[in-house]
Design a protein around this nucleic acid. Structure first.
Lengths: 328, 328
DNA sequence: CGGCGCAATGTAATCGATTACATCACCCTT
DNA sequence: AAGGGTGATGTAATCGATTACATTGCGCCG
């Protein structure tokens, strides 16, 4: 009925001033118990809800955080965002999401229009000048970019690649092929570097084929691999999707996994455990990552805990399933 | 550098009044060309960005829509949300997401705090009194609830079930098992009803087992089906996940799909086409649904186009892949 | 040449909540 | 009994942008 009730309406109904209503709602301890009761009754009666815009304006806070991700449709992000929303929601902060591939001006204003108090950035490929122009606390998650000079959180990608190499070497594979991700991506580069370092350390032969994280690039890699003179007996791909593509193409070519070739993926996406055969892969704790990033940002925002600068990594682990076996 | 520049700063820099700056930015046509140039230069020089809270307060608009979904981690929603964000972003509206499983008070205020101008609701299981209490335009998407008395948009679930039945009957299957979804869910009920009606119309025997959309319930259904005296040769599940569970369990029991049993899923999730064998399933055009809902809401918000009440359905279609074959 | 109309700009009220500061009542101490 | 403290409440300034209304200056018409 009442289209909008303002704090003044509540004050009138309760027979007190607006200041008292405001205090009753945000600091119940400082108003008298009698008054508190009256105010609460009036709030109930009028169906009052604070106007967020007015409060935000006065408080110079939006009680909201912004999550920026490239390609929101990517299922990799959904669990992360869910975890962020959970933590933020508990702290009473709203979560706004936006595609980080929007134009620079749009991105620029996102950090300046006062709609958000902080940003969680899941993209390492934005123009540094835009990112550095933001005057808000920002946490980089999963991907990062040193040019931003911002705190970052993610798994240790190099160590993760090492886990894959160790696992395969332990199974007796003397040569391993890595299907890399797009070269402009930090994650790709770190994983590839980690792979090469671990292979060298372990004394196994290393080969690398280009890729771009997609299923199609995995299938292409399978064909290229099949045509090699001396095929490595094990493959480590830069993403699960790529591994799926590789394995599917092998199936099409009549090559059995894992008996003829072992495959290790990266990410442990929802589906990895249900693929046939279930995929051995590096697990990225997405919920934990989302939660950790949100907790840090919320702490910075609510309690003024400064964000630790520099990289913080979470240890990944390998999930051994059905796509790896001892070398024949 | 400048921690925050207000419109007054720009006005001072340009030597005009704040009113002129405001007009230059929001209605460039009404200020003189000279003045416009000066203002723009001043905006550039000071790095001014409007303060969204102040503008929202004054305009009584938030330029933001809220998407409410149960379980944001569910990958089914990510593509829908991406499409919503795309449409909203083009219209200059922010997208806020929240878990619809939050407490009633939280939900209540979401519709009243002035942070959002409209809501896209992906959940049909919220308390009707909360939903009806919102004084904002709301569009229900995918799921719906008649008690809300709100416009709804989704695929025609009954017709979709009919497509599955027709396909299987055409392949010569004389009996079909339906693994249903949770009975409290409208989608489950509509799909089941559509299934039964189509089976009756087509003259094929229909059986139903309970389920809840999950992979585990699909696996359980497979075991129950395996134990049946006269097993139907075809299965239609209420979700893709359920179909994956059914098929995986069949594989474990040594039953081949599709030669020994045909399976049709529902949703056409990202992974359906890459499952082995690729899943025959009902395709839900998620991007299209998200876009359509967002377009309607944006039109209602921006141009005052009233929301059509009642259900609006989009025709689904069947994607035939590798889990269905002619009855043996 | 006086006045009307129009275009450009300025002045100040407004959106709704928060909060610094002022006020008041009451009690306690000396 | 005067003075000082304490706790509860009211008054009014404030956050920053928008916009109704007022003002100014100029050209044009009769």
């Amino acid at each position: 009925m009442a289209p909008k009730t303002r704090i003044a309406d509540v004050a009138a109904a309760a027979g007190v001033s607006t200041a008292t209503v405001s205090r009753a709602l945000s600091a119940p301890g400082v108003v008298g118990p009698e008054t508190l009761k009256k105010v609460m009754a009036a709030v109930e009666a009028t169906g009052y809800r604070v106007n967020a815009a007015a409060r935000d304006l006065r408080r110079q806070r939006a009680r909201s955080i912004l999550v920026l991700a490239p390609n929101l449709a990517n299922t990799f992000f959904s669990r992360i965002i869910a975890a962020i929303q959970e933590v933020a929601g508990q702290a009473g902060l709203a979560v706004q999401i936006s595609d980080s591939r929007a134009g620079p001006e749009v991105l620029q204003s996102l950090g300046h229009d006062g709609r958000a108090d902080g940003i969680i950035l899941l993209d390492g490929a934005l123009p540094p000048e835009v990112v550095r122009g933001w005057r808000l606390p920002v946490v980089q998650l999963c991907e990062w970019n040193d040019a931003y000079a911002l705190p970052a959180l993610g798994i240790d990608n190099a160590a993760a690649a090492g886990l894959a190499v160790t696992h395969l070497a332990d199974l007796g594979h003397g040569a391993i092929l890595h299907v890399a991700g797009p070269p402009e991506n930090v994650l790709s580069r770190t994983r590839e570097a980690g792979f090469l370092a671990a292979a060298r350390a372990r004394g196994v032969a290393a080969r690398v084929l280009p890729g771009d994280f997609t299923m199609a690039s995995g299938a292409q890699a399978a064909r290229d691999w099949q045509a090699m003179a001396d095929r490595p007996s094990a493959v480590f791909t830069a993403s699960d999707e790529c591994a799926f593509g590789f394995i599917s193409e092998c199936a099409r070519m009549g090559i059995a996994v894992p008996s003829e070739v072992s495959v290790v993926g990266f990410d442990d996406v929802e589906f990895a455990g249900h693929f046939i055969p279930p995929l051995t892969t590096i697990h990225q704790p997405r919920a934990k990552l989302g939660r950790a990033a949100a907790e840090r940002l919320v702490a910075a925002l609510e309690e003024g805990v400064p964000l630790k600068s520099g990289h913080e990594t979470i240890a990944p682990h390998l999930v051994v399933r059905g796509t790896t076996a001892a070398a024949g």
